[in-house]
Design a protein around this nucleic acid. Sequence first.
DNA 1: TGCCAGGCGGCGT
DNA 2: ACGCCGCATGGC
Length: 286
Amino acid sequence: MDTYISFSFDNEFFNISDTLSCGQVFRYKSFGKGYLVFSLDKCAYCYQTENETIIECKAEDKDYFYSYFDLGRDYSLIYDFAKNSNYQIVQDASSLGKGIRILNQEKEETLFSFIISQNNNIPRIKGILEKLCASLGELKYFKDEPYYAFPTAYKMAESSLDFFYSIGLGYRAPYIKKLAEDLKKGLNLNNFNALTTPYLKKSLTTIYGVGPKVADCVAFFGYHRSDSFPVDTWIEKVYRENFDGKLNGTEKISKWFVDDFKEYAGYIQQYLFHYKRNLENDKNNK
DNA sequence: TGCCAGGCGGCGT
DNA sequence: ACGCCGCATGGC
C-alpha cells in the first residue's frame, strides 16, 4: 500500500487559502480542515494550524510538493521589497497577501489551464477543468478519496472537437484540441527552458490561442519567471485607478511594471490581483 | 436581464 | 504597429 507522510512549514509567509484562491491555480477543493490540491496525477492535503501549514502526500511525492509550494524560497525578501515600494497600494496589497506563495506548476497543465482562462471567470474555469479531468483523466485515490488526474495530451488529442465543446469550452475548444495534437506530435515545453523571459513569452505566443496575457501567466506559474506581469481586466483597472496609468495596450502596461519591479514584478502582480478582487468581493457582500 | 470574466485571432487601417 | 470586432458560455 501507499505510504503517506506529512511535513510542515511556518505560517508567516504561507497562507494556504490565499495561495490557492489568488487565481494562479484552479484544481483544488475544500476538504476536512483544509484543501485537497491536485497537480498532474498527484494530490496533497493541506491545512493550517495556528503556526504551521501541514502538507500531507504520498511519500514519493514529498519533493514534488516541496517544490510545488515553493518552500525553498525566502519570501521575506519579496515582502520587504513590496513594503518598501513608493506606491501605497503595493504596500497595502502585500500586507493583505503576505501569505501568498507562487506555486511551481507543471508546464503543460498550466498552459492548458490558462488558455481556458481567457475571457472567462474563475468559478467557470474550475468547472471546465473538473469536467476535462473527470472525462479524460485517470481515476486515482488519495487514501479513500477518489480524484481524477489531469489528462495526458495524448488522451486529449484522441478526443473529438465536439467533446471539447461539450465541456463548455466554447470558442476555446479548437485551441485546446490543437495544442493537444501539437504536443502529441512532439511539441515539448521544456525546449523553452533556457530562453530569456522575453523570448520565452514570444515563443509561447506562437501557440494557437496563446496571447500576451496567457504567455505571461505560463511564464510565471509554469516557469517561475517572476519578471513577468500578466495584465488582465482586473490588473488593468488597478493600473488605471492606482498607478495613474496612461499607457494603452496590455503589453505596454506589462512592460512598464516589469521595468519598475524587475524580478519582483510577478509577485507584486499577485499581491495586487488578490487585493483588488478581495476589495470587490467585500463590496458585493455588503 | 444584461454585463462581465486571469483575452485572442482575424481583419482593416 | 494599432484599434476594433466577434466570440461561447455561464456566474452574478
